[in-house]
Structure formats: structure tokens, C-alpha cells
């Protein structure tokens, strides 16, 4: 699967965060782990208090950011942040958190149907090493917009995965691998 390469400026998100092992209780795409609970919490908050978040850029777009740390490989600890993008860092409700992502170049993979719940991270890493890119930051995000119809309607759903990339230091060339 070939991604698009795009540049994006700073992204300021308002939402909720979880740090720890989100899959300690249950792996994959389910409401029975911390990622599912985070989405539930965020969705309920938006339903009840949409008016408290000012300056939302696009109501139809929600972000799920995964940030890896030095402990991700050994303990599975990572941060998950679910939120919406805002124009500026003002009038943030006291109960919410902000995540600021730097300007970056991204490889954008569009996933369809069953691909969405497959193990696509491996495919992304394979593409990256083959295409001469490497990760620019230790995070990535999924952008859920109106094309994503929910887990019970994967058939008609699409989802974009954004991975910050930069040209690899050692770009493989013929005869040099």
C-alpha cells in the first residue's frame, strides 16, 4: 500500500489521555481496554459538553494519537490521546488535556474495511524501510472523519493513519545493502 507524503503544521488537540499499558486487559479493537474506555469517555464528554470546547476546527474529525516511550518495548507502556483539533490554545476546559504535535512530514496510509482492524503497523514499518524513510518522532495518529462509520460497520469505513517520517540517514542503494 503506497502512502501519500504530506506536510502538516503544528496540530493542537484537546481531549483525554491514558498512559500505561492499554492492552493489559484486552488487546486489539475492543471497548474492553483502555483505548476503548478513553473513546467512551471522550464521546460521552462531547455529547454532554460540546459547548465547553471552543475553537474546534472540524467537528467531524477526531484523532487517536499513540506515543511510544522508552518503556514501550519492554513494558508495553505508551500514551494514548483521543481528541479534536482546535485553532488555538485558549479557553481549554479545566478537565481536559492538550496535546501539541510539531510541524512534520507525514506518510498517510488510507485503510479500508477489514484492513482497519488488521495489524497494519508492521506493514507501515516494512514500507518505511523499503522506501528510504524513518520515523521522525515517536508518535503516530489515526484520523477518524466522516468516512469512518464505526467498528460495527467496517465494510463501508475508511481511516487515515499518519506517521511522521524523514528521509533515512542511510538510504539503501543498489549494491550497498
Amino acid at each position: 500500500m503506497e502512502p501519500r507524503i504530506i506536510k502538516k503544521g503544528q496540530i493542537t488537540l484537546v481531549g483525554f489521555s491514558f498512559f500505561g499499558d492499554p492492552f493489559a486487559e484486552s488487546g486489539g479493537w475492543t471497548e474492553e481496554n483502555e483505548i476503548g474506555r478513553l473513546w467512551n469517555r471522550f464521546t460521552i464528554y462531547l455529547t454532554d459538553h460540546r459547548d465547553r470546547i471552543k475553537h474546534i476546527k472540524d467537528d467531524a474529525c477526531a484523532y487517536e494519537v499513540h506515543v511510544e516511550s522508552e518503556e514501550t518495548a519492554s513494558k508495553g507502556h505508551r500514551e494514548i490521546f483521543v481528541g479534536v483539533e482546535v485553532e488555538r490554545l485558549e479557553d481549554i476546559p479545566v478537565e481536559m488535556l492538550v496535546k501539541i504535535l510539531p510541524p512534520a512530514q507525514y506518510a498517510v496510509f488510507t485503510l479500508n474495511g477489514e484492513q482497519i482492524t488488521s495489524d497494519w503497523s508492521r506493514m507501515i514499518w516494512e514500507w518505511m524501510s523499503g522506501a528510504g524513510y524513518e520515523s521522525a518522532y515517536e508518535y503516530g495518529f489515526q484520523l477518524c472523519d466522516q468516512r469512518f462509520k464505526g467498528l460495527d460497520n467496517l465494510e463501508g469505513s475508511e481511516l487515515d493513519v499518519y506517521v511522521p517520517v524523514k528521509p533515512a540517514d542511510n538510504v539503501p542503494t543498489d549494491g550497498n545493502r
Binding site: Q10, S17, V65, V67, S69, E79, F81, L89, I92, V94, L97, V98, K99, I100, L101, P102, Y137, E138, Y139
Partner: peptide, 13 residues
């Protein structure tokens, strides 16, 4: 200075 993607920001009024 600048964004730090590994961290979150909280603003308390």
C-alpha cells in the same frame, strides 16, 4: 519552548 509530542499540556484557569 515548542511542542513536545510525548507530553500533554493542562491549563488550569
Amino acid at each position: 519552548d515548542g511542542p513536545h509530542p510525548a507530553l500533554v499540556v493542562k491549563v488550569i484557569p
